Amino acid sequence: MEPISERRGYEAKKAARPLWRKLAGAALATVLVLAVVGHNHGSGNDGDRVHYRRDVSRRASAWQPKTGTTWQINIRDQLDLSNGNITPPVEVFDIDMFSNNAETVKTLHDAGKKVVCYFSAGSYENWRPDKDQFNQADLGNGLVGWPGENWLNISSQNVRNIMAQRIKLAADRGCDAIDPDNVDGYGNDNGLGLTADDSISFVKFLAGEAAKYNMATGLKNAGDILPSVLDVVNFSVVESCVQFQECHIYSPIIQAGKPIFHIEYPDSAPNMDDAAVDNLCNSRGQDGCSTVMKLTNLNAWVEYCDKTKY
């Protein structure tokens, strides 16, 4: 059987107090506000990095999208939102964390969108800015068809430290959730002896780190381990389940009231006829899926089951 895939958010009681205490309290509040403002606008940016940490203090838990939530994924391009025209008109944007800065996330938030930030958690990519932090011993076999990528030893403390830093960066960007890719090394020729238990432990680690910042976590493919991590993930991002006739494997996500953000890569895209779209969108196990049809480079082009294209 082919592997499932090769890829891939009180009001205080007011007691009567003497005037001097009120004045002292106001002064202290002013100092604290200035300190916070100074911290948020201080140094620490690298390159185009801009820090925009969401105010998580008012959020009791991570954002939980609902079944049927509409979405777009574009991890190929740096989004250009300068003209104020944000398309398609969907609820969620899944974007590359490294290519897009905090201003992009803020612009999407200001337009009422939720932002999922993509990064590869289970593979080394030789073009990422933190590539030199990996040890040679962390790297396994190359990913078939993806030059410059290698499977990672997801049990390595060094790898986990790097991923914790990436998750913090996602929080600094203002992301509502993370989309950690390539957590299914156990189903591929990884060269590291990775097992399903390794991936279960790793996904729980990633979700735990994201929860520190009140961010949600998605499970990318890896349907075999879904029952073991269903309680810690907030959605699934599933690729090519129609192609591999595996959409039904992910039904527990829908049954839990959580969405499946579903991607197919039709051979005839971007020129699919209506019959091809209907056949793809009505396949077994797709009830409740939020389906997009994409090119394999995952750029801006997208088509939906209602046959609208952007």
Score class of each variant (00 low, 15 high):
residue 148 G to V: 13
residue 97 M to R: 02
residue 222 A to G: 05
residue 297 N to E: 10
residue 36 V to I: 14
residue 247 C to I: 07
residue 94 D to T: 08
residue 211 A to R: 12
residue 237 V to M: 09
residue 33 V to Y: 09
residue 182 N to Q: 08
residue 207 A to I: 01
residue 87 T to N: 11
residue 35 A to R: 09
residue 206 L to G: 00
residue 183 V to S: 00
residue 21 R to M: 13
residue 199 S to F: 01
residue 178 I to K: 00
residue 98 F to K: 14
residue 125 E to G: 02
residue 153 N to I: 12
residue 217 T to L: 00
residue 138 D to P: 10
residue 224 D to A: 11
residue 188 N to D: 00
residue 242 V to H: 01
residue 67 T to F: 00
residue 288 G to Q: 05
residue 303 E to Q: 13
residue 113 K to C: 13
residue 289 C to I: 04
residue 223 G to A: 04
residue 290 S to T: 06
residue 61 S to T: 12
residue 83 N to I: 03
residue 216 A to C: 06
residue 283 S to E: 07
residue 10 Y to Q: 15
residue 183 V to A: 02
residue 195 T to S: 12
residue 43 S to M: 06
residue 231 D to L: 04
residue 79 L to F: 08
residue 194 L to A: 12
residue 268 S to K: 05
residue 273 D to K: 08
residue 187 G to M: 08
residue 50 V to I: 15
residue 89 P to E: 12
residue 36 V to G: 05
residue 252 P to K: 07
residue 142 G to H: 15
residue 51 H to R: 14
residue 163 M to S: 07
residue 287 D to M: 05
residue 4 I to K: 07
residue 156 S to T: 09
residue 283 S to F: 11
residue 91 E to F: 06
residue 251 S to M: 08
residue 76 R to Q: 12
residue 307 K to L: 08
residue 295 L to K: 10
residue 243 Q to C: 03
residue 243 Q to K: 12
residue 281 C to P: 02
residue 171 A to T: 05
residue 111 A to N: 13
residue 136 Q to G: 15
residue 216 A to I: 08
residue 149 E to R: 14
residue 144 V to A: 15
residue 206 L to P: 00
residue 18 P to M: 11
residue 209 E to H: 00
residue 118 Y to A: 02
residue 75 I to G: 01
residue 280 L to W: 03
residue 185 G to E: 01
residue 221 N to A: 06
residue 286 Q to K: 09
residue 223 G to K: 02
residue 59 R to P: 01
residue 3 P to E: 07
residue 139 L to W: 08
residue 135 N to H: 15
residue 47 G to N: 09
residue 115 V to M: 03
residue 224 D to R: 07
residue 33 V to C: 12
residue 202 F to Q: 00
residue 192 L to P: 00
residue 116 V to F: 14
residue 247 C to D: 03
residue 20 W to A: 11
residue 163 M to Q: 13
residue 293 M to L: 14
residue 102 A to S: 14
residue 126 N to W: 11
residue 102 A to F: 04
residue 303 E to D: 05
residue 299 N to Q: 06
residue 137 A to M: 07
residue 19 L to M: 10
residue 36 V to L: 15
residue 112 G to R: 12
residue 50 V to P: 00
residue 3 P to Y: 08
residue 54 R to M: 12
residue 138 D to H: 14
residue 251 S to W: 02
residue 143 L to N: 10
residue 14 K to F: 13
residue 42 G to K: 08
residue 132 D to F: 13
residue 235 F to S: 04
residue 20 W to R: 13
residue 108 L to P: 06
residue 14 K to G: 05
residue 295 L to W: 06
residue 168 K to T: 11
residue 295 L to R: 07
residue 236 S to V: 15
residue 237 V to E: 01
residue 133 Q to T: 10
residue 244 F to Y: 13
residue 135 N to T: 09
residue 197 D to N: 11
residue 50 V to M: 08
residue 220 K to N: 13
residue 174 G to I: 03
